[in-house]
Nucleic acid binder design. Structure first.
Lengths: 224, 224
DNA sequence: GTTAGCATGTAAGGAGTTACATGATTTT
DNA sequence: AAAATCATGTAACTCCTTACATGCTAAC
């Protein structure tokens, strides 16, 4: 019925992340929080059932794995002395690692290529953007431009309502200030998008091997 | 059980808006979209049931009213010539106007004074901020500071996850850029809050009659 | 030794969306 | 004449959160 169903967003995000590398739930969630953005924090009550569903659908597989030795600190804390665990290797905390199946891979590609109107909405956009590394430039541009148009539409709408509300008997300055601030941050996102679009277009000809097309603002600030 | 229940946000927003002036559903929704912020658009499927619930609770009353003459355009378009409507005055489209009862007034005051942790969350914060005009400075400060702390906590969390993800085998530049952009806009909100807090503190002594305490950034840009 | 973080789940419930229904009025 | 906007609702459904339940491991 509906062109692009809600709820596929989470699925897409999981597929995308697992495509990069296998992960267990707990870590997956942390990555999802970044990718889903807006400071949203996904609950386990959402994540695990979703994973189960994807398992049933055959998009992912699970297998129990031992957590790798904590690396950094492991050098010092208790050298030999394996407790009393049956297996020779120190039985670490168990975790369930999820991995993409070929079917999941296909599913991911399919969802990514369907860049319908839902892709310009907040969450969906964030997820699709996060996986631009594996998206054709044509689609990248479509999404970026669609998103920008969507935001501009939003701006127009809000500005309109804001003007209308100024005619009201009681003008609430705080509400106006709030709306103004909101407007400003949307405007900022629009210009961010414009930069990205320009960069994407600029790279047009010599497009090729290296991942991200962004140049202007990208790059880690001062981390080494 | 829970300190401040979800779902009270919409109720609070409606109470606050109706406190300013009576309104019908359609208009209420527009105002709510401003106050709820983030470009969220509330559906009627949420609004009307909520209003019904508040009616039952006795916080608001409804009464049918005729829409006022469209005002602006009415001056030119057809001067005298009232169509053929039975009533002397041109029978306008009917609308249901909602008004606050004394009980609703009380309810609003009560909810506003309970500025618990829920008040620093996105939606709740926006609503409370919008009604700062009728909030004590003490509470205003508590909310502003709580909100700022909440955001800073969020920042720390995201930055932590971001660093951790950089150690991953596959570093996804787009995801990083997305997170960076998100971070930036949260940082901007923090400084906005800091300005507001400073302004709020500055006005400390000669606090009094005029509504908003904000001075630095407020004021319509170039409208008139 | 206690707190904080790691790790995985389930059940119940709520809040809100979508889709459906319907119709008047205004603007182009 | 058509399209947009105004205006009010309901029913089904879905996604997600909250609260519960459990236990290991690292750091202070």
């Amino acid at each position: 019925m509906t062109v692009t169903r809600r709820g596929e967003t989470l699925e897409l995000a999981v597929l995308g992340l697992l495509h990069e590398n296998p992960m267990h739930g707990y870590e997956l969630r942390k990555q999802l929080n970044l990718v889903l953005g807006r400071g949203r924090v996904l609950s386990y009550g959402s994540l695990y059932p979703a994973l189960k569903k994807m398992l049933r659908a055959g998009f992912i597989t699970e297998h129990v794995a031992a957590a790798p030795v904590p690396a950094k600190r492991a050098t010092r804390a208790r050298s030999g002395a394996a407790k009393t665990t049956t297996t020779g290797a120190v039985s670490r905390r168990q975790r369930i690692v999820y991995e993409l199946t070929p079917a999941g891979d296909e599913r991911f590609a399919k969802l990514m290529s369907e860049a319908g109107p839902a892709a310009w909405e907040d969450d969906d956009f964030g997820v699709r953007f996060a996986f631009f590394g594996r998206t054709d430039r044509e689609i990248r541009l479509r999404i970026l431009e669609g998103r920008r148009a969507r935001l501009e539409e939003r701006l127009a709408h809000v500005r309109r309502d804001l003007l209308a509300s100024e005619g009201a008997p009681t003008t609430n300055s705080y509400a106006v200030e709030l709306a103004r601030h909101g407007l400003e941050s949307v405007e900022r996102e629009v210009s961010w998008l414009s930069d990205l679009i320009a960069a994407e277009r600029g790279e047009g000809r010599h497009e090729g091997q290296d991942g991200p097309t962004v140049t202007g603002r990208l790059g880690k600030p001062e981390t080494t």
